[in-house]
Amino acid sequence: MIINNLKLIREKKKISQSELAALLEVSRQTINGIEKNKYNPSLQLALKIAYYLNTPLEDIFQ
Rank of each mutant, 00 (worst) to 15 (best):
E25C: 15
I3T: 12
A21M: 03
Y51E: 08
L43V: 09
S27M: 04
N54V: 05
Q62I: 12
Q62K: 11
L57T: 04
N32P: 01
N5R: 11
I3Y: 09
Q62G: 14
E11T: 12
E58Y: 10
Y39K: 08
E25V: 07
I34Q: 02
I60G: 01
K12V: 08
S27Y: 03
I49R: 00
L23R: 09
L53Y: 02
K12H: 10
F61L: 04
Y51N: 06
Q29H: 13
Q44W: 12
T55A: 08
K14G: 15
F61Y: 04
K38T: 13
K13C: 13
S18Y: 11
I3H: 13
L24F: 01
S27H: 06
L6A: 02
N54G: 12
I34W: 09
Q29I: 10
E35F: 02
A22I: 10
M1N: 11
Y51M: 11
K13V: 07
I34E: 00
L43N: 07
E11H: 08
K7F: 06
N32Q: 15
L57F: 10
P41S: 03
N5M: 07
A21V: 03
V26E: 03
N54C: 10
R10E: 01
I9C: 07
E35L: 04
E58H: 13
E35Y: 03
I15S: 01
E35R: 03
K13M: 13
R10W: 05
Q17F: 03
E58V: 09
I2G: 10
Q17A: 08
Q62M: 13
A50S: 10
K14H: 13
V26N: 01
A46Y: 04
S42G: 10
Y51A: 09
Q44E: 13
K12D: 07
L8M: 13
L53H: 00
Y39D: 05
I49G: 00
T30N: 03
K48Q: 08
N4G: 05
A50I: 04
N54I: 05
S42F: 04
I31Y: 06
Q17N: 03
I2N: 08
K38H: 13
T30G: 01
T55Q: 05
T30K: 07
I34R: 01
L47C: 14
N40T: 15
E19Q: 14
E11G: 06
N5F: 09
L24E: 00
D59A: 11
L8F: 13
Q29C: 12
Q17P: 05
S42E: 05
A22T: 14
K7A: 10
L20I: 04
G33P: 01
I9V: 10
S18G: 12
L47H: 08
L45H: 02
P56W: 04
A50C: 06
Y52F: 14
K38M: 14
S16V: 03
E11Q: 12
P56N: 08
K36V: 09
N37D: 05
K48C: 08
L24N: 00
L8S: 14
L45C: 06
R28E: 14
M1G: 12
K13W: 09
K12Q: 13
L23C: 09
I31G: 00
V26A: 03
E11L: 13
Y39E: 07
S42I: 04
L53R: 00
R28V: 15
L45V: 05
A50P: 00
P41D: 03
K14F: 08
T55P: 03
L23H: 11
K48R: 12
Y39G: 04
N37L: 09
N40F: 15
K36H: 12
L24S: 05
E11W: 07
L8A: 15
L47Q: 11
K36A: 13
E11C: 09
T30L: 15
N32K: 14
Q44G: 12
E58A: 11
L45R: 01
M1W: 12
L23D: 05
L43D: 06
K14N: 14
I3Q: 10
L45Q: 04
L57Y: 10
L6D: 00
I9N: 03
Y39W: 12
T30C: 15
L47D: 04
L20C: 03
I34C: 02
L24A: 09
L53A: 02
L23K: 09
E58F: 09
N37T: 07
E58D: 09
L53M: 07
L23Q: 08
E35P: 01
S18T: 12
E35N: 00
R28F: 09
I9M: 07
I3M: 12
L24Q: 00
E35G: 01
I9Q: 04
A21L: 03
N32I: 15
K12T: 11
E25S: 13
L57E: 03
S42C: 07
V26P: 00
L43G: 06
E19D: 11
A46T: 06
K38Q: 14
I2H: 10
N32S: 13
K36N: 15
A21P: 00
N4A: 03
F61I: 04
L20K: 00
L45S: 01
G33R: 15
R10V: 05
Y52A: 12
K13D: 02
L23I: 11
N4P: 04
P41A: 06
N37Q: 13
A50E: 04
L24G: 01
K7W: 05
Q62T: 11
I31W: 01
L45F: 07
L6I: 07
G33H: 15
L24T: 11
I3G: 11
N5H: 09
L47T: 09
